[in-house]
Every structure is written in structure tokens, then in C-alpha cells.
């Protein structure tokens, strides 16, 4: 799990082009949206594609993202449970 979380942080930084942020700057429980990393609705759409591309998880409704993308913890847990690749 720890490995998945580190990998996830790296990928998020890469796809969202978070130039000023390093893997070490993101705590597992930090909120990704609003306060915290400060991601927005466009980022949520980017993360939906990341889930599909990297882990074979298809989310058809953007609203589903709300609970899944709360933090690295919630995201990693969802991926571990649902990944197809």
C-alpha cells in the first residue's frame, strides 16, 4: 500500500503538472481538493482518466470522484480494491 501511495503521488504531480510540489510534500491524509493540495473540477476529470489509464478503473459519473479523490489514502484504498491492471 505504501508503495502504491508513493506511486500515486508521483503520477498526480506529473499529470496535473504540479511543478512546485514534491512527493514528500503530500501527506497521505491531506485533502486533495480545496484546502490542502487545492485541486479543482478540471483536475478531478484528469484524475478520472488517470484511474482508467493506469489502473483500469472506469468512473462514468464525475460525482463518484468526490469520495474517491478525498485524499491519497482514499484513492489508494479504492484503487487497491478495484484495479484491473
Amino acid at each position: 500500500m505504501a508503495e502504491l501511495k508513493e506511486e500515486l503521488k508521483g503520477k498526480i504531480i506529473e499529470v496535473l503538472n504540479l511543478e512546485d510540489i514534491a512527493v514528500a510534500d503530500i501527506a497521505d491524509s491531506d485533502p486533495l481538493f480545496g484546502e490542502g493540495l487545492g485541486l479543482d473540477s478540471i483536475d478531478a476529470l484528469e484524475l478520472i482518466v488517470l484511474m482508467d489509464k493506469e489502473y483500469g478503473i472506469k468512473l462514468s459519473d464525475p460525482k463518484q470522484g468526490k469520495s474517491i479523490f478525498q485524499s491519497i489514502d482514499t484513492m489508494a484504498a479504492y484503487i487497491a480494491e478495484n484495479r484491473t491492471k
Binding site: I42, L45, E46, V49, D52
Partner: peptide, 9 residues
């Protein structure tokens, strides 16, 4: 496949 919205926007 695997298209993301940012560049389109």
C-alpha cells in the same frame, strides 16, 4: 483513448 480535458479547455 485516455484523453484528458485540460488541453481541450
Amino acid at each position: 483513448e485516455f484523453l484528458t480535458p485540460t488541453a481541450f479547455i
